[in-house]
């Protein structure tokens, strides 16, 4: 996947999104509802965070606040050190337009516009001239496998294609952060997984941070971190790691542990662990941190 023309070079220091003790209340007095309570979170560059939780747990409210669509009642949100919550209403659209990309559950494409126009219009809103906006939109859509569907209206696209258009739209202004609200809810499991892998690829290859709100347990494996939100608070955090044998994302808490050369590895099963320990050189890069141990292990294997 390529970075598109006009993409901002990596910034120093790396862009971050920090949520510090944020609370959101709706109503007041006896009717007051606290949707999010004293939540803190830091999103690192290139990180994929999945926020899960039951309905009414505050996931969407948190996502709205992250995307500068809703102001917290208390606490602050910092974008690259700048306090987002202190910005005037008039400046927020520009922040949303240039720093965030949004992916919605219902795709939310404009019905009168073609796939190409749905993407190009967001670039135009950011001041890109019509011709350049269309060129850029076409490049992204083609990269996402929609080169043959550029001029199709949304009603002529499948669910997966619509979500790809939505992702292209989210990418067109080269945002640092992509916020996705239940992006797989209207997709079957195969297409849903495809879309999530696509989002992960965007994060890892382009260095964009992605925050996903979802109920879908099946997409946990694409996240770097899974946060469980309940009653407006993060109940627990699940670190995700890749099984070096089968490549699966596995929850650190539930994984099978194995240690080799002083380093801990996590595996989806004992089978994978045993396979790894029998021949670690098959699963680790030759030039990595375990270079010497790997060479020794290979020699021992040869002697045996």
């Amino acid at each position: 996947m390529t970075r598109y023309e006009g993409a901002a070079p990596p910034q120093t220091p790396a862009p971050t999104l920090e949520v510090n003790h944020v609370t959101k209340r709706y109503g007041e007095g006896p009717t007051e509802v606290v949707a999010v309570r004293d939540v803190s979170l830091e999103v690192a560059p290139g990180e994929v965070i999945l926020i899960m939780g039951p309905s009414g747990s505050g996931k969407t409210t948190l996502l709205l606040m992250l995307g500068a669509l809703l102001r917290p009642s208390a606490g602050e949100i910092r974008l690259d050190g700048q306090v987002l919550t202190a910005l005037s209403e008039g400046r927020l659209p520009d922040v949303r337009l240039r720093r965030f990309g949004f992916v919605f559950q219902d795709f939310n494409l404009l019905s009168a516009l073609s796939a190409l126009e749905n993407v190009a219009i967001v670039a135009q809103l950011a001041g890109v001239p019509n011709g350049a906006a269309r060129k850029k939109a076409a490049a992204i859509l083609t990269d996402l496998g929609l080169g043959e569907r550029l001029h199709f209206l949304p009603e002529k696209l499948s669910g997966g294609e619509k979500q790809r258009v939505a992702i292209a739209r989210a990418l067109v202004n080269d945002p640092t952060f992509i916020l996705a609200d239940e992006p797989t809810a209207n997709l079957d499991s195969k297409i849903g997984h495809e879309i999530m892998r696509l989002l992960r690829r965007v994060a890892k290859e382009q260095g964009r941070s992605i925050v996903i709100v979802s109920h879908d347990q099946r997409i946990k494996d694409i996240a770097d971190r899974v946060l469980w939100l309940e009653d407006g608070r993060f109940a627990h955090e699940t670190g995700m790691a890749v099984d070096p044998v089968c490549g699966m994302q596995v929850e650190r808490e539930r994984a099978v542990d194995g240690t080799w050369d002083g380093e801990s590895f996590v595996f989806c099963s004992r089978g994978c662990r045993d396979e790894f320990l029998r021949a670690p050189w098959r699963f680790l890069p030759e030039g990595g941190a375990h270079r010497a141990a790997l060479r020794e292990a290979v020699r021992e294997e040869a002697r045996a």
């Binding site: 995307g67 669509l69 659209p93 520009d94 922040v95 949303r96 337009l97 240039r98 965030f100 949004f102 919605f104 939310n108 404009l110 019905s111 219009i121 967001v122 809103l125 950011a126 739209r169």
Partner: peptide
């Protein structure tokens, strides 16, 4: 209305 809401969410200004 919903589509104008989408454009606003994406960053379109009311004036636009």
């Amino acid at each position: 209305r919903a589509e104008y809401g989408i454009l606003k969410a994406l960053g379109a200004r009311t004036w636009t």
